[in-house]
Design a protein around this nucleic acid. Structure first.
Length: 409
DNA sequence: CCTCCACAGGAAGCGCAGGAGT
DNA sequence: ACTCCTGCGCTTCCTGTGGAGG
C-alpha cells in the first residue's frame, strides 16, 4: 500500500497545527492502546489460536482457550488481531460466526458481561432492567440460529462471580447440541488466578492454554523499530535511543507497553523542545516521567490508610532512623516492620485518622511489595526475632511528595 | 536444649454497602 | 419497598518460625 504524503493533500488550518510535530509522522500509531497489524515474536501464538478458531468456519466448535502472561506481553493485541481477521474473513464468505471482545475490568460481573454481550448482539433492543436469566436466554437464542459465537473475555480475573458465568456459558453448548456454539477465550495476567478457580470451571475454560512469556531486550528492540518506522518521521529517532528504551523496559519487566510508552513520551519531549531528533537524553527523561506516572497511578488508587503506611516508610527513610548496622558490619538503609507500624500510628493519630490493626498493616505491606513500591526481606542473623526488613522501591522524597499531594498534608 | 521475642500469615467472623430477587 | 445475599475491608485469635539469650 502506497503511503500518502501529507504534503499532497490540501491543508486544513487545524490539520497542519495538529500534525505540526517535529518528530512524529503519526502519533496514533504509537499510542498505548493502538493494536498494531504486525506482532513480531508472537507468530506461533497467532497461528495456534487461528488454527483452533478456524474450526468454526467449518461449523465446528473450537476449544475454549485460556491465555495468560504478564502485562504488555501481547495477549490482548494477539487476540484482537486474530478475531478481527476472522471477522473480516467470515463477513466476506457470509459464514455465521460472530466474535465479541469484552474487557471485564469495565464489566466485572456475570450480569454486566451478559448485558454487554446482548447489547452487541441485538444493537436495536434495550435490555436494561431484565433479569440475568432472560438475558442469558437471549444469548442462547442467538447461538441457536446457527451462529458460532466467539467471546473474548479480557482481564477475566476481575469478574466476581466468574464460576457462574463460565458454567452458564459452557453449559449453553450442551443445550445447543451442535446448532451453533459458544467459544470462550479468557485472558488474564494473574498467573495464580487459574488455581483459585472451581475445578469444573477450570476444566471447561482451560481446554487449551497458552503462556505469553515476557519479551527480552532484543525482541523489544525489534518491536520498537517496527513501531517507530511508521509512527515517527524518517531518521527522527536515533538507533541508540531505541536500544536504550528497549533495555530499560526489559530490565523492568519485558513489558512492550512500557517500552512503547517510553518512546512515545521521549517523542513528546522532543516535540515540546522543537527538536527534530529523539536521542538517549529524551529517553532518559521519559523514563523518569513514565516512572512517576506509574507510581502516581498506583499511589492515588491506594486506600488512604495504605497511603499513610507508605508515607510512614518514606518519612523514616528520610530520617537517619533508617540506617541500621546489620551484622555489626556494614550500615544499610532498612526499616523494621515494627517501627514502621509505630510511625504509621503516630502519623494517623496526628491526622485524626483511625488506626488499622497490625494484622491488616502486614497485609498492606505485602500488597505494597506486590506493587513494587517497597522491597522486603526476612530478617537474618544479628536481629532478634522474626521480622521483615523494609526498603522503599523508589525515591523517598518523590514518594513523600506524591502522597502528601494525595493525602493533603 | 528450652524459652522468649517479634514478628509472619492463616482462619474465622463481623458490620456494612450495594445489588438481585420478590 | 422490602428482604436476602454476597463481596469487601477489617479485627480477633491463633499457630508457625528463626534467631537470641539463658
Amino acid at each position: 500500500m502506497e503511503a500518502v504524503l501529507l504534503e499532497d493533500k490540501p491543508k486544513n488550518l487545524f490539520e497542519s497545527e495538529f500534525y505540526a510535530s517535529t518528530v512524529f509522522a503519526d502519533r496514533n500509531l504509537i499510542a498505548p492502546h493502538y493494536t498494531p497489524n504486525e506482532l513480531p515474536f508472537r507468530e506461533k501464538q497467532i497461528e495456534e489460536i487461528a488454527k483452533n478458531l478456524s474450526l468454526c468456519i467449518h461449523n465446528k466448535r473450537p476449544d475454549n482457550f485460556f491465555l495468560y502472561g504478564k502485562t504488555g506481553t501481547g495477549k490482548t493485541s494477539v487476540t484482537k488481531n486474530v478475531i478481527s481477521q476472522l471477522s473480516e474473513f467470515v463477513s466476506q464468505k457470509n459464514i455465521q460466526v460472530r466474535a465479541e471482545y469484552i474487557n471485564c475490568r469495565n464489566h466485572n460481573s456475570k450480569y454486566r458481561v451478559l448485558i454487554k454481550l446482548v447489547k452487541e448482539l441485538y444493537p436495536t433492543e434495550n435490555f436494561l432492567g431484565y433479569s440475568a436469566a432472560f438475558v442469558y436466554e437471549k444469548v442462547l437464542d442467538y447461538a441457536k440460529k446457527g451462529n458460532n459465537l466467539i467471546l473474548v473475555l479480557d482481564e477475566l480475573d476481575k469478574v466476581k462471580d466468574l464460576d457462574e458465568l463460565i458454567y452458564g456459558l459452557t453449559r449453553g453448548n450442551d443445550e445447543l447440541q451442535g446448532k451453533g456454539g459458544i467459544t470462550l477465550i479468557g485472558i488474564s495476567n494473574n498467573l495464580n488466578f487459574k488455581e483459585r478457580l472451581d475445578p469444573r470451571t477450570k476444566s471447561s475454560l482451560c481446554e487449551q492454554e497458552m503462556v505469553f512469556p515476557p519479551y527480552n531486550a532484543e525482541e523489544l528492540r525489534k518491536i520498537l523499530f517496527t513501531r517507530a518506522e511508521t509512527a515517527f518521521k524518517k531518521n527522527a529517532v536515533e538507533e541508540s535511543a531505541i536500544n536504550l528504551a528497549a533495555a530499560f523496559a526489559a530490565q523492568e519487566s519485558g513489558d512492550a507497553r512500557t517500552a512503547v510508552m517510553l518512546l512515545l513520551r521521549a517523542g513528546e519531549i522532543s516535540d515540546k523542545n522543537k527538536s527534530f531528533k529523539v536521542t538517549d537524553k529524551e529517553v532518559i527523561k521519559a523514563k523518569q516521567t513514565v516512572e512517576e506516572e506509574i507510581i502516581f497511578d498506583m499511589i492515588s488508587t491506594l486506600p488512604r490508610q495504605q497511603q499513610l503506611v507508605l508515607l510512614a516508610i518514606s518519612d523514616l527513610s528520610l530520617s537517619n532512623k533508617g540506617i541500621k548496622k546489620l551484622n555489626g558490619l556494614h550500615e544499610e538503609h532498612v526499616l523494621f516492620s515494627g517501627e514502621v507500624y509505630e510511625q504509621y500510628r503516630v502519623k494517623a493519630k496526628s491526622l485524626q485518622e483511625n488506626i488499622i490493626s497490625s494484622r491488616w498493616y502486614r497485609q498492606y505491606i505485602s500488597e505494597l511489595e506486590m506493587y513494587g513500591l517497597i522491597h522486603t526481606t526476612s530478617s537474618g542473623k544479628g536481629i532478634k526475632g522474626q521480622t521483615r526488613l523494609i526498603k522503599l522501591g523508589y525515591d523517598a522524597k518523590k514518594i513523600k511528595e506524591l502522597i502528601e499531594k494525595e493525602v493533603g498534608g
